[in-house]
Amino acid sequence: MQRRAEILKLIKENGFKRVSELKDIFQVSEVTIRSDLRMLQEEGKIERNYGGAMMKEELETPSFSETSMLLSEPKAAIAQAAVELIQPGDSLFLDGSSTTLLLAKLARNIENITIISNSIPIFEQLKEITTATLIGIPGSLNPRTQTFVGPYAEKMINDLRATKTFISPKGVLLEGLRDITMVEADIRKRMMDSGNEVIVLADHSKFNNNRTLIPIDSFDAVHTIITDQRPDEAFMSIFAEKNIRVIVADTHDD
């Protein structure tokens, strides 16, 4: 059908299109558009999500084990720089990333901290610790990232507060932080809103990663960015304007 081909073309060009937008473009009912999207999803071409649809390949999130193997040295250096910002008595939001898992391993020896996370691997790492308080965020399991997401997880984060939030988004663009899926972006946004100090952990591959379509937030709430290579001047200018501290982790042994 011609209309479905045109819808698919629009989604491919824009990354994501809402049902309401498609209804206005094609001058048909929402019921008709939803039917078209259902057919395209059944053909394996798109994924319907949050009142619209996006290309299926954009939703292919790397598994946790896959991301854990990538850029291990820079991530370890970033985690080492991050743990130096944690003080005894701090409460921490940690998102479900391989970099925050490394951070959790390093933070286990800091006394009297509280770790709040939706990550199964983080709690597997810390489950026997006796010097920290662990708070697990419940929700629907995302099997690829091994994290709990969804409305229940978001509500719990909204109800909590922490002295520091550590997140590792999938992309850092000039307009702000980005992710691959809406559910993970929503969790990270809630953690940013509920933390007194927001610290972004982003290796050099995250900068200008244009495959990350979903916005998390602008840089307005960010206090510190820890990376392994100095960002280019376009980013540094924005960070200076917003008074964001940039820490470049040392990736070389002495």
Rank of each mutant, 00 (worst) to 15 (best):
F123R: 07
I187S: 04
D220I: 10
G52Q: 05
E154M: 06
I110E: 00
A221D: 12
R245T: 15
K75M: 06
F166Q: 04
V200H: 10
L103P: 10
E57Y: 15
D253P: 01
I78T: 05
F93D: 06
K242V: 10
E60R: 09
T130G: 09
Y152C: 02
A76P: 01
L141W: 11
I238P: 04
Q80G: 02
Y152V: 13
V198L: 13
T32N: 14
I7A: 11
S194L: 01
L103H: 14
F235Q: 09
L40A: 08
K45N: 06
M236A: 08
G195A: 11
L160A: 08
I113D: 11
T100W: 12
K164M: 03
L213W: 05
I167G: 07
I110C: 02
E128C: 03
P231G: 13
V246Q: 08
E57F: 15
V246G: 06
S237C: 12
E233C: 10
G176M: 09
P143K: 01
N209I: 00
E154L: 10
K155T: 08
T165M: 09
H204F: 14
L106T: 00
E42K: 15
I86G: 00
Q125T: 05
L71Q: 00
D228Y: 08
F207Q: 11
F93P: 07
T147Q: 14
T133L: 06
I216K: 14
N208C: 03
I116L: 03
L173C: 12
E43S: 05
F123H: 12
S65Q: 05
E57D: 13
N208Y: 14
R230V: 15
A107D: 05
E60W: 04
R38A: 09
E13Q: 15
L37E: 02
L141D: 03
E66M: 12
N243C: 09
E128S: 07
F235D: 09
F219K: 05
E241V: 01
R144F: 02
F64N: 09
